[in-house]
Design a protein around this nucleic acid. Structure first.
Lengths: 189, 189
DNA sequence: TAGATTGTTAATCGATTAACAATC
DNA sequence: TAGATTGTTAATCGATTAACAATC
């Protein structure tokens, strides 16, 4: 039982989204690793390798059945279930995330929201009331929550992240700003 | 002139933020690679290796001068200048980012905001008016903008990203939700 | 000086890519 | 069958880690 590389997991999500997007078009029933890779910016070999960690989903000489692959990836990623998450940080960004449609599409919803700022505790955001960060562990364990969304200042991200893992959180979605790719930055001399 | 690994760049930002946080405390004048790494979740070797791509900033047997290292990292990352960025995507998330204090702290501000949704074009967000995605290239080139923030639906991220690079953007900050780390996901069999 | 810590090299680890047998 | 494409292996590439000489 070898663990799956983190980049693979992230790409699986990207593949899933693309398949979701094209599954509506009935004329596209089958997609090759080359086409899928091309569409999301990965090589065909990478697509096949990524999928191979979880089983065999394709048909040699043919490709992958779009609807089936979408379903299987959804199962692997847990997007077919409804998952509860918590939100930590209820600033501008955090409050926007409570209403973020991307999460809804993935079957994710917020079961609790937290802040360390006393002036925010007790406020309402949508249907939820902001609780103190100190209550995170209790809520996570009682409700068996596995996923957390972080929207705290970057300087607090590491510390909050550690406490989330300590509370039993298995996946953290981080919205502290980190650049996707800083192109062309070369070694100075 | 070898290029610097992407993970190194991302950690440099994390180091910078930590140094910024502790630079206010006058009693902390010097920090070792071990202490800095410990504080942000990296090994001492990683810290030293990361810094070594850009020069020699420390003092053997002593460590790194906090204020100096912060200044040097700020120069490398360009945080000492004011940078103009554009925002693509003016949904809940995008609008929240316009007022996001994290950007201000890094010397970043928005010089233009864009959306592909006709019903949003012409709307005001703060002091800015939403323009069409079709105008991105023109604005980027005229104002020599290097940085873009993406807050579009995940399904559009790849496509928008490509057009940004095509327009001349050098760094993209992506706010489409991708998990930082999906812990403990093991190979299925 | 003795202890501490850097900067750098070489070894290790892990992810990506290329190539190809299997097979639809 | 011939062409296409998978799943997998082995080779390559790149990042991390360990170790240590240099030196404050």
């Amino acid at each position: 039982m070898k663990s799956v590389p983190q980049p693979t997991i992230e790409r699986l999500i990207v593949y899933y989204r693309y398949l979701e997007k094209i599954a509506h078009f009935d004329e596209i029933e089958v997609i090759s690793s080359h086409q899928l890779g091309q569409s999301v910016g990965a090589s065909a070999a990478k697509v096949r390798k990524d999928l191979s960690y979880f089983g065999e989903f394709g048909c040699k000489g043919v490709g992958y059945d779009v609807k089936n692959l979408k379903k299987r990836l959804g199962e692997i990623l847990g997007f077919n279930n409804i998952w509860s998450m918590i939100l930590v940080g209820t600033g501008n960004l955090g409050r926007a995330l409570v209403n973020y449609q991307e999460f809804v599409r993935m079957g994710l919803h917020f079961a609790g929201i937290f802040d360390c700022d006393l002036s925010k505790i007790g406020n309402r955001v949508g249907e939820l009331v902001v609780k103190s960060n100190h209550e995170i562990k209790e809520v996570v364990q009682k409700r068996e929550i596995k996923i957390a969304v972080m929207a705290v200042p970057a300087s607090e991200a590491h510390q909050v992240g550690k406490s989330l893992v300590d509370a039993g959180i298995k996946a953290i979605w981080n919205f502290a700003p980190v650049p996707l790719k800083w192109y062309n930055l070369k070694k100075y001399n």
